[in-house]
Design a protein around this nucleic acid. Structure first.
Lengths: 103, 103
DNA sequence: CAGTATCCACCCTGATACTG
DNA sequence: CAGTATCAGGGTGGATACTG
């Protein structure tokens, strides 16, 4: 036994990637390096602005992504993964393979 | 890039371990092999019967755990992980280590 | 463009009581 | 012991309109 359930609660960091949209967002950022708000809306057409905004804010607070604002008109905002966020790639990949192994 | 976000949606199997209680339940079953309903209630004192029941049912439907009923009086029900469920150990471990690395 | 504000419906969850 | 039934509440998410 590697980890004691007493010391692995959901808030250990797992909830930072919980939810319907966070993993897809992370995957798109892994693929594209940098994306604007509207880019994410295009590839995730079913998410509402509200939810996208909320998820990006939470991911930023959890230091998984970086938000860069260019003070132009119209405004331009770019999102990209932090190193900590990029470290999730192998784990998400394992999770994905695990999911596929069982139908 | 290993996985295409187009092909890694949350319902790929990730939602089978989503939620507040499923990972802790899996971890306890990894540790103890077999547990009764009341055993799980003891180690997870904050979960209600209703939620525990619901989570166990979903985990069973997703083939992560097995439910064994002994037709005795009083009834005895045991839960244990399937092979598919046990395969999650390394992934949860990685996730946990990843979470700990960052504060 | 990149959000926020507002309103509203719904679902998830908790508490309690009940059952086989 | 191992649940289910019922009711109530609070938070979550969607739709739309608005803003800098």
């Amino acid at each position: 036994m590697k980890i004691d359930p007493q010391f692995c609660r959901v808030d250990d960091g797992l909830d930072t990637i919980l939810g319907k949209w966070k993993i897809p967002i992370i995957l798109y950022l892994l693929k594209n390096q940098t994306m604007r708000f509207s880019d994410l809306q295009k590839v995730l057409p079913e998410i509402s602005k509200k939810m996208l905004s909320k998820n990006l804010k939470e991911l930023e607070e959890d230091d998984l992504i970086t938000r860069t604002v260019y003070p132009t008109v119209p405004p331009k905002v770019e999102y990209s993964l932090t190193e900590h966020g990029k470290e999730l790639e192998d784990i998400i990949d394992s999770l994905h393979k695990w999911g596929l192994r069982h139908q």
